[in-house]
Simulated scan of single mutants.
Amino acid sequence: MTQDPTPAPMAALPDPEAFRDWMRCALMVTGRTHTRTGRDLGFGRNTLRDFLGTPGRDLQLGTAAAVTRYLAEAAQAEGLALPPIGGAHG
């Protein structure tokens, strides 16, 4: 049996504003702060603060992936559910 060599379509990546909204929501749900998250991940002290506080500011994909993984793991450890990235947050 041969495998189809066509790669699976990539999931759509959120724009920075949608990721910023999700990150704020995920921080609230998990009870984490941007300061603690950045410190735990070894980021510069202003990396997440500047992203959250500056409209139009962007993050590198690796940084966004690390934040997503960190918050998802925190939520799972506490039995919490995070909304999908780019989904409605309330």
Rank of each mutant, 00 (worst) to 15 (best):
P9E: 12
M1K: 12
A65R: 04
G38T: 12
R69F: 07
L27N: 03
M28E: 05
A11K: 15
M28Y: 10
T68Q: 11
L71P: 03
P14H: 06
R39Q: 11
T63P: 02
Q60F: 06
A64Y: 13
G86N: 07
R39D: 09
V29K: 10
L82I: 07
E17R: 08
T30V: 01
G62H: 12
L52D: 10
A81K: 15
P14T: 08
P83G: 03
Q76F: 01
G53R: 14
E17V: 06
E73L: 11
A81C: 08
R24A: 00
G53W: 03
E17M: 10
G53S: 07
A11Q: 11
T35P: 00
Y70D: 09
H34C: 06
L41A: 10
R49A: 06
R32V: 02
A64V: 09
L48D: 08
T33L: 05
R69T: 12
Q76H: 10
A72C: 01
V67F: 05
A81R: 15
R69Y: 05
N46Q: 14
T35R: 15
D21K: 15
R45I: 13
R32C: 02
A81D: 09
A64W: 04
T2K: 13
L52E: 02
C25Q: 10
N46D: 08
A12Q: 12
A8Y: 11
A12P: 04
T54V: 02
L52M: 09
Y70G: 01
A77P: 02
A12M: 06
L59A: 07
P83W: 02
F43E: 12
F19P: 03
Y70S: 04
E73H: 12
A26V: 11
M1Q: 03
A75V: 04
M23Y: 09
L82D: 07
P84L: 14
T63N: 10
A77F: 06
A8T: 12
T47M: 05
M10P: 03
L27I: 05
T37Y: 04
T30F: 01
E73T: 13
A88L: 04
P55N: 03
D40H: 14
D21C: 12
A75Q: 02
A12I: 01
R32W: 00
E78T: 09
A12W: 00
D4K: 13
R57E: 10
F51R: 00
A75N: 05
D21F: 07
